[in-house]
Design a protein around this nucleic acid. Sequence first.
DNA 1: CTGACGATTCACT
DNA 2: GTGAATCGTCAGC
Length: 201
Amino acid sequence: MRKLPIEFYHRDDVILVAKELLGKILVTKFDGIETSGRIVEVEAYNGTIDKASHAYGGRRTQRTEIMFACGGVAYVYLCYGIHHLFNVVTNDKDIPHAILIRAVEPIKGIDMMLQRTAKKKADYTLSKGPGNVSKALGLYTKHTGISLLSKEIFIADDGFAYAAKEIAASPRIGVDYAGKDAKLKYRFYIKGNPYVSGNIK
DNA sequence: CTGACGATTCACT
DNA sequence: GTGAATCGTCAGC
């Protein structure tokens, strides 16, 4: 198992990077405790031309500043005052591409995930949905800006890959406000995987 | 400084 | 299926 190189994140096509993230392993290691999961659902946010993106139109604020940084860092955003959503920033400096990790399949540290999410037993809701993924892996807004090649948070490749026919595309979830961009098929997931969030709003 | 709202989730009808 | 929870961020005054 090896960490994905910085070049993986520095490519122009955020859609391609999003698809390739499927099957990779997201690992967090805080206070010596490691938790990890295989990525099975993602959504791409295509920078300044994507109305659903926080950086649409080149809008640059203190919060979105990290999206304009060089790819390969984490962007964790607080939604509805309760949920932390974990994103991967891609592409080069000043190009605010990002990929939202919507679901992972737990691999390591499941006990710790149960503790973090206050669940009694592991089921498919443990790491299903962006809020739960962040909660299970212990990610919070303070982790924004941390490199994905650091020892605390990183994404690894263990040689496993899903076949192209197992990957499906659909419109993104919860972005109805984005007008025609809400119809773009920027959400990618593994067909039939029970951790993929099934609610299509 | 103030008000409105969101890349969601969970409990309840 | 519906609605509440809950607070940082941003735009406007």
